[in-house]
């Protein structure tokens, strides 16, 4: 039983990471098609990571710099363990949405530490922007999350997914608003334009990553791939029923749920890419105002709406 569970967890995490790396290539392809270019092959992400990990020389700025590598990969894979993927609860019964929110902070803080230790001023500015972005998008996102928790009367993501079997959250009127808000928050989480402020390559030389190269950058790319899967899965789990379409425990159900989950996160990711390709970059204080003024207001309206629904 335990061995089985460990095998399933290992399988799903590996697949999730592969999907993430695949999505990086797919994303570049989609952006290229929007630009009317051919674009790289879809497996480009694998090649990039393989190249970075096989670099002949690697530099380090000390042990704190190496923490970025360890923390970013560890944290993001740990987060994926605590998210239901296609309705399969890996470890998600052992924690809840708050744990996921804070687990997502492990790679971010480790990455920030590594960037700080690299001593590059661009990296520090990038981290500052990333943290301010985090403060900005978390407010609307957290409010929508609380709306869901109050509506389903649980804070466990696995249970929220289970309760959406009959009806996905996005089919309930207040959560349409909430999902729209959360999708814009997702845009900030994935650092896609107009919120690609932290890593703006032409302003601050790719920000926190300025000093990373070789295996460190390879690990950070795996982390980036993991964030794509983690955040889109979080969105799908919260609003789109986690992609669960069949509820019996058969093998077919596993496969079908997995396929639907894959399609849904692909759609969410594509939407975010399309927004990315059509907008220029905000300045950091504009992004902050955007999230705390308009997004937070809309999120709060949906929260009050849900609250009134639950009270009555």
């Amino acid at each position: 039983m335990v061995v089985e569970k460990i095998a399933v967890i290992a399988l799903y995490t590996t697949i999730a990471m592969f999907v993430g790396i695949l999505f990086m290539g797919v994303g570049r392809k989609i952006v290229a098609r929007v630009h009317n270019r051919v674009g790289p092959p879809v497996y480009q992400g694998f090649i990039d990571i393989a190249k970075l990990l096989t670099k002949k020389t690697n530099i380090s700025h000390g042990w704190i710099y190496d923490l970025a590598l360890l923390f970013s990969m560890t944290g993001i894979m740990l987060t994926i363990l605590f998210l239901p993927i296609g309705g399969v609860k890996l470890l998600s019964m052992e924690g809840d949405a708050f744990l996921v929110l804070y687990l997502l902070a492990i790679p971010a803080l480790g990455f920030a530490l590594g960037a700080g230790a690299s001593g590059n001023p661009n990296a520090a500015i990038g981290v500052m922007r990333a943290l301010v972005m985090m403060l900005s998008y978390e407010l609307p996102f957290v409010i929508t999350l609380i709306a869901l928790m109050i509506y389903y009367d649980t804070s466990s993501i696995a249970q929220i997914v289970e309760m959406q079997h009959a009806k996905w959250a996005i089919m309930i009127p207040p959560f349409v608003l909430a999902a729209a808000v959360a999708d814009m928050a997702l845009q900030g989480m994935l650092m896609e334009a107009p919120f690609d402020i932290p890593t703006a390559p032409h302003e601050i030389a790719s920000g926190p990553m300025a000093e990373f190269g070789g295996k460190h950058l390879g690990a950070l790319m795996i982390y980036k791939a993991g964030t794509i899967v983690a955040y889109t899965t979080l969105f799908v789990d919260l609003f789109l029923g986690g992609g669960v379409v069949m509820h019996d425990g058969s093998v077919l159900a596993y496969l079908a749920n997995f396929a639907v989950w894959f399609i849904l996160i692909f759609l969410v990711f594509t939407l975010s890419l399309l927004i990315n390709t059509s907008f220029p970059r905000f300045r950091i204080e504009q992004a902050f105002k955007f999230y705390w003024k308009y997004e937070a207001l809309l999120a709060f309206i949906s929260l009050i709406w849900v609250y009134l629904m639950v009270i009555s």
């Binding site: 670099k55 020389t57 590598l69 560890t74």
Partner: peptide
């Protein structure tokens, strides 16, 4: 992550 860290040589600059 630790495998990546250990298996590739690195030079402290």
């Amino acid at each position: 992550a630790f495998l990546i860290y250990v298996l590739r040589k690195q030079k402290k600059v």
